[in-house]
Structure formats: C-alpha cells, structure tokens
Write a protein that binds this DNA or RNA. Structure first.
Length: 281
DNA sequence: ACCACAACCTGGCCGC
DNA sequence: TGCGGCCAGGTTGTGG
C-alpha cells in the first residue's frame, strides 16, 4: 500500500517529467473517484492548467496548477500512477487518464477503486486536518514526546493516526516499533523519554530508508516508470507472521490493534502496560 | 476521548 | 477444479 515513502517516490519520479507541462484533459473510466467538483467540471477545469509544482502531504499528492487550482489525489490501498506515452493502451484497472501536452499521460490505476481525486482552489479542505510531517526538521524527539502525551491510546494506533502524524501507515508503523523495540500495545503516554527518543529515530530512519529503496512493492505498488520498489525486502516484521525474527530468532506474531493487522516480535518488543489483551485472528 | 464497526471495492486465498 | 466466503486496509462516518 502506498504510504509516505511510496508517495514520496512517486512525487520524485513525476517532478522532472511533469512540472512545466500542461494538462489537456482527462478521461474518466471510474467517475466516482472524483470527489470534487463534478466529473464533467473536473475534466473541463483541469484542461489548460500547467503543473507548477508537485508536493506531498502525508499520503496525499498535490499538483499545484497555474489556474489557482490544486489537483489532490490519494492512492489509498491499491492505487498507482504510471507515466505512459499518449494513446497507450488502457489497462483494465485504469480509472482515469490525465492527458498532458508533450506526448504523455498519467494513468491512475487502482484495482480496488478506493483511490480518489479532487480539484480544489483551497487544498486545506482536503489536507487541512493532517498532523505533522515526520521527516520535517521540526519533527523533533521532543515534539514526538509532546504528541504522545496528548493521547491515551496504544502507540501503534497513534503512529497511524493521520491527524497526529501524517504519512505513516500499517507497514511502517510496525517496522518503526520493531526497530525501537517497543510493543505495539504500549500506551503512548507511558513511553519513557529514552523510548520516545528511540522511536523518533526509528520512524525517521525506517521512512528514509524506504524512500531510498524506491518504496515497498507489496500489493500493486509501482513507480510511475513501471519499476517496482525494494523496501519490502528489508521488512523485519511486516507480513512476516510465523517467520523467524532476524534479531533474536523467535517467531514473529500477528495481533489486531484497532482493526489492523499488527506484526511484531514478542521477544524484541516486550509487553508493558497494555490497553487490552492481544487479539489473535 | 476513545473505540468498534460498516462502508467503499476486488482479487487472492482458504477450506470444502 | 470449482465455489463460496473471508480477508486485506486508508479513510470517513456513525454510534456506543
């Protein structure tokens, strides 16, 4: 699933190819993916607007356009963007094609049709409630400690709460907690200063490393060039239920925390104060 | 404030 | 091999 490192990788691939080019129109194959405005207006309004810059906020991609609009999109679980020559064949899972001048198009593919797009003048209506960017310079260990104090929830739940920290999803939350040696059910506000420091380092290290690997190609993720990412080969706990822990040789377990599958090593991430007994599914 | 659950979807996997 | 049913999970919305 595209999380911060995957979206960041996509952004970095698109910038040199797309910035400075002009949208000439859109072909919508799944019109319900357009959240705003109406599908018809979306196509009319995007045409003629030049891409001035591309940014990422959390797991959202923001295309700032010349006509005061911002194209905002979210890939959700199975979305991907492909840069293809114009009039390329349209794959069965392609939900929208954004046509650009210069002889190429952006294909928005999405097996599960969860992905969405907006064309808005005020991007805050979409991304305004997101939390802090974990890779920004102002995301310090002290700040993380403050954020943890404010919420009485399991640390795993807090890490994936987009309104607190933006961009961390299920996979990287598990990886960061393993790297920090912290049990996913530990209460956020009970972590020691030392643990907060380790977690702060782990979060940034795990995300930065994954960007370096070009993202994790689990499920359908691919880069706009069609290349896959390699971060999944470096996962230590995510999707490794029953396999050996690389650090201690014990068995990786899977529990459910807040409705999400959660992978961890019981030996390397000892249980502290729990909110509830771990649930097995 | 916190948590659970349904809804949005489809393909892959499980068990029979 | 075929078929039904479950499961994955980001986000939003509802309700306890």
């Amino acid at each position: 699933m595209p999380e911060l490192p995957e979206v960041e990788t996509i952004k970095n691939c698109l910038i040199p190819e797309v910035v400075g080019h002009r949208f000439t129109g859109a072909t919508l194959l799944w019109a319900r993916m357009i959240r705003f405005p109406s599908p018809d207006e979306f196509g009319q309004r995007i045409a003629g607007q030049t891409v001035k810059s591309i940014d990422r906020r959390g797991k959202y991609l923001l295309f700032r356009l010349s006509g005061r609009d911002t194209l905002v999109l979210h890939l959700k679980m199975t979305g991907s963007l492909l840069l293809l020559p114009s009039s390329s064949a349209i794959d069965v899972h392609t939900r929208a094609v954004l046509h650009l001048d210069g002889g190429f198009d952006i294909h928005f593919r999405d097996q599960r049709k969860f992905g969405v797009m907006w064309l808005v003048e005020d991007e805050a209506t979409v991304v305004g409630k997101l939390g802090r960017e974990p890779l920004d310079n102002d995301f310090t260990a002290d700040l993380l400690g403050e954020l943890l104090q404010r919420h009485s929830v399991p640390i795993k739940a807090l890490l994936v709460d987009q309104g607190v920290i933006a961009g961390i999803g299920n996979m990287y939350a598990d990886e960061a907690l393993f790297a920090a040696g912290i049990h996913p059910l530990r209460m956020a506000r009970n972590l020691s200063n030392e643990e907060v420091g380790r977690l702060h380092h782990s979060v940034r290290q795990v995300l930065t490393a994954a960007i370096g690997y070009g993202g994790a190609s689990v499920s359908t993720y691919q880069q706009p060039s069609g290349e896959t990412g390699n971060a999944q080969f470096y996962f230590k706990v995510a999707h490794r239920r029953g396999q050996k822990c690389y650090r201690c040789g014990g068995s990786i377990e899977r529990i459910v925390v807040r409705q999400r599958g959660t992978y961890f090593c019981p030996r390397c991430q000892p249980a502290g104060k729990r909110t509830s007994p771990p649930v097995r599914r």
